[in-house]
Design a protein around this nucleic acid. Structure first.
Lengths: 145, 145
DNA sequence: TTATTACTTTATAATGTTTATAAATAGTGT
DNA sequence: ACACTATTTATAAACATTATAAAGTAATAA
């Protein structure tokens, strides 16, 4: 499974015209296999053995590239450094209040909210539901006349 | 209204044994009146006129104190610096799937999700809806027999 | 396969936010 | 007003992240 994810990710890179370097391969592989949500430094340290000369900047640069291509999500919790997460599909819906159109909106699960809710209320939380409402670009254009 | 909020906040400080200094008063006042979500530096700059000698550390220290006392929420979006928000009541619902009970659950608005949704889909977002589902403590206890 | 070209990596320095420190100052309760 | 202790200030330090320029390397086509 994780092998397929890596292959897909590499295909995504190829399709987007992003070069596949050994460092990028290794960082992606680490992100996919990592259960935790590593910081840039975690990744840097983890790959030190394989790439003794790799620069921290390389890790940051590539995490940014992955994020721009949509492979990786940057998580900013309260602590000092960002955490990075390989994106597996999951989505919410954005709903147009004018025409009813529903657009998928990918976003990592709101684990934090569930955890806090559970902690505060004593509930055993099973899931949550979220929808976002607004006006779609087409209806916005119509409005503009 | 905002005057009451300030008064309440000051009472909270007094009750918690936190000294009320002119700087703290001013920072709280600024946070309450501010519609945006200011960074520490925003606050520092905004109060420069009133407190020409105030140190940046004072702003950071007090924001931490306010956060620890529960008056202020620290928001970490992707950008470089944290933003701070005076906590006004606002809540979601946690719903028991067994007995239907609804419990209020306070949580700062999911601005980040709305912003990202807007950015990705091109929608003009008006609001969102979120509910959390699970089993309440009472029903959990019944289950436990 | 090799040459070419543009993109990447590396090493380093720089930037910017946040925290630590110690001396000076000022709230609070008596 | 006094004494006690928290707080402020000024400064330096720590830390994550980004910028820069030179060296290296992946992809493409001849």
């Amino acid at each position: 499974m994780t092998h397929d994810q890596l292959k897909e990710a590499l295909d995504t890179l190829k399709d987007t015209g992003v070069r596949i370097t050994p460092q990028r391969h290794a960082i992606l592989e680490y992100l996919i296999n990592s259960m935790s949500h590593p910081t840039a430094d975690d990744i840097y340290k983890a790959l030190e053995g394989k790439f003794p000369n790799m620069s921290v900047a390389t890790v940051y640069n590539n995490l940014r590239v992955f994020r721009e291509v949509g492979l990786v999500k940057e998580l900013t919790y309260g602590d000092s450094s960002s955490r990075f997460d390989f994106i597996t599909t999951q989505h919410y819906h954005v709903i147009c209040e004018q025409c009813g159109k529903i657009v998928d909106f990918h976003y990592p699960g709101l684990d934090e909210v569930e955890q806090l809710a559970s902690h505060v209320t004593g509930f055993k939380v099973s899931h949550h539901r979220m929808e976002i409402y607004g006006t779609c670009p087409e209806c916005l254009a119509k409005e503009a006349h």
